[in-house]
Design a protein around this nucleic acid. Structure first.
Length: 294
DNA sequence: CACTGAGCCTGCTAGC
DNA sequence: TGCTAGCAGGCTCAGT
């Protein structure tokens, strides 16, 4: 499922391919894919506008239009955005999942595929975008996301750490995979109360979040099943996951102890009962990139 | 504020 | 081998 590194990879891939293109057409294949309006109304608002930039906010891909409006695309679980050159108008094995298609003045196009139809495309006026931006928390790869910032977020809340990290209004862009990975790397139990996390643990967690997200972006994201990065190629981070995807009872990649599974905030959660115990028993952080202890 | 559960969806898979 | 029920999950909304 696309989280921050996957969406960032899509952004980086699409940017050079669609920036400067003028929108000449739009076809909506599944009505609910465009939020709040029908396909024709959406087309009227975007036709003849030029895409002047491709940005990201949390898990949203943001297409910046020449008139100051924006189009946001949320991939949710299975959404994919493919930039298609003029001579290649379809992705054959995905055609049945085509939900929307932007076509450009030079004959190229941008296809939105989505198996489960959870993904949403949204037209945003500048005022709408302010609302969207306000509903999203700090960007974890921005300068604003410091150890102090994270610690102050944690110290003021009593919720369990995992649902807190998944809450987009608190930190934008983390999803189930990277939260499990970051908590594992920091040696923090997913049910630990946020305000019980020490400054030192916050430091470990901060480092884990930043390094794990950055390393995954370097590998063009994690492809478990559906995700593809903007022109159809899979990511490479999946072989570097250290806890997510391990079956309960199978050995922890760090200590060999059988990993456990919980449901936290309605999401499957894998953790190591030995590495992610109470603070005084937690192992030191293992470097998520090099695998060496620090 | 925190939490729980339903609903949105379809492909995959475990179990029969 | 073939069928089916249940699972997977990001996000929103309603209710406690």
């Amino acid at each position: 499922m696309p989280e921050l590194p996957e969406v960032e990879t899509v952004r980086r891939t699409l940017g050079p391919l669609i920036t400067g293109r003028s929108i000449a057409g739009f076809v909506l294949c599944w009505d609910r894919t465009v939020a709040r309006m029908d396909g024709n109304s959406f087309l009227d608002l975007i036709i003849d506008r030029t895409i002047v930039d491709v940005n990201r906010r949390g898990k949203l891909v943001i297409l910046e239009l020449s008139d100051g409006a924006r189009v946001s695309v949320h991939l949710r679980m299975t959404g994919e955005l493919f930039a298609l050159p003029a001579d290649r108008q379809r992705v054959p094995d995905r055609e049945r999942y085509l939900r929307a298609l932007f076509s450009f003045d030079d004959g190229s196009s941008l296809a939105f595929y989505d198996v489960r139809k959870f993904g949403r495309i949204c037209y945003l006026t500048p005022g709408d975008y302010e609302d969207v931006d306000r509903a999203l928390g700090v960007e974890p790869l921005s300068a604003a996301f410091s150890v102090d910032c994270l610690h102050s977020i944690l110290s003021s809340r009593s919720r369990a750490i995992k649902p807190l990290l998944l809450d987009q209004i608190v930190i934008a862009g983390l999803g189930n995979i990277y939260v499990d990975e970051a908590l594992f790397a920091a040696g923090i139990h997913p049910l630990m109360r946020a305000h019980d996390i020490s400054v030192e643990q916050a430091r470990l967690l901060h480092r884990a979040i930043v390094e794990i997200l950055s390393a995954s972006i370097d590998r063009r994201g994690t492809t478990l099943r559906d995700y593809r990065g903007g022109v159809g190629e899979p990511g490479q981070n999946q072989s570097h996951l250290r806890i997510y995807g391990i079956r309960p009872g199978h050995p922890c990649t760090s200590c060999g102890y059988p990993v456990a599974r919980l449901v936290v905030g309605q999401r499957g959660t894998v953790y190591c009962p030995r590495c992610q115990l109470a603070p005084e028993y937690a192992l030191s952080i293992t470097d998520p990139i090099n695998g060496s202890s620090s």
